[in-house]
């Protein structure tokens, strides 16, 4: 087989992906130019939609940051030699890994108070922060499983070598096992990141001003069917632009690690 025939399927699928990447924005653009009244309406609403999308990004980043921190610790604790530590953590992970994100967002929204009192000071507890927690909980459960799996995937010979040099369990974990886990857990971690990012749209259901919520606002205000359609196309395009690069990067990293 020649190199050309080997490369061809790859090239074609790259082309397809690129088409996918520009198709939605292209439809939106062309349609706006065909019907300029629609285009003008859209341009007017774009800043409002963008402010909503900024909230999606903030929620997604915060939830992933929190979820990753907690999840990494929980993943390590899932393998703790003490049952008293291990069992509660395993229960947490199993329960929240199998709970719908929407349920958790509703739960955090309606369980937590709207403000918290710290030393007599009233601190507001806004809904978007509750959404962050609602998404950070499943994220932490997924990340815990990823971490646990990565730790278990490291050959026991690595532990033995560390032990033979005089490393304690904790030291071996910190300096030898976890650094190797980082590489292995990056691709699955990015899958979680993409899924949580898409999940941020659920926050609209509890009244957080994010992209989906903003699009609903806009379509209610404009009251044009074609505008409603294009507004939701913008929502889809925005999420696609955010999540698709993550998915692509994940696939590339997976390929690289498989080759290494």
């Amino acid at each position: 087989m020649t190199t050309a025939t080997l490369l061809e399927p790859r090239k074609r699928s790259d082309l397809l992906r690129t088409v996918g990447f520009v198709a939605l924005p292209l439809v939106i653009l062309v349609w706006s130019f065909i019907d300029l009244t629609l285009g003008r309406e859209l341009v007017e609403w774009i800043p409002y939609l963008a402010s909503g999308f900024a909230m999606n990004i903030v929620i997604s980043l915060s939830a992933m940051a929190l979820g990753t921190m907690v999840g990494a610790i929980f993943g390590i604790l899932e393998l703790a030699p003490y049952r008293l530590v291990r069992y509660p953590v395993v229960a947490y992970v199993q329960i929240f890994r199998n709970a719908p994100h929407l349920v958790l967002i509703f739960a955090t929204t309606y369980i937590f108070p709207f403000e918290i009192v710290i030393f007599g000071n009233y601190l507001p507890f806004p809904d978007w922060v509750k959404a962050v927690i609602g998404l950070a909980i499943p994220a932490s459960a997924y990340v815990a499983e990823i971490t646990r799996g990565a730790i278990l995937s490291i050959a026991t010979a690595q532990w033995e070598a560390a032990k033979g040099l005089g490393f304690s369990r904790g030291q071996a974990m910190r300096w030898i096992i976890l650094p190797q886990c980082l590489r292995r857990s990056l691709p699955p971690w990015m899958n979680v990141a993409a899924s949580i990012t898409m999940g941020t749209a659920l926050a609209s259901l509890v009244g957080v001003h994010e992209l989906l919520h903003a699009a609903t606002d806009a379509s209610t205000a404009v009251r044009r069917l074609d505008f409603t359609i294009i507004a939701y196309l913008v929502v889809m395009a925005a999420f696609f632009m955010l999540c698709y690069p993550i998915a692509r990067l994940t696939r590339r990293l997976e390929r690289r690690f498989n080759a290494a």
Partner: peptide, 21 residues
Amino acid sequence: RIALRKRVGIVFQQYNLFPHL
């Protein structure tokens, strides 16, 4: 036991180097 292992080196059949370093 850790204190002891610091004083006794061991080399394994499969070398077991740390691949990330």
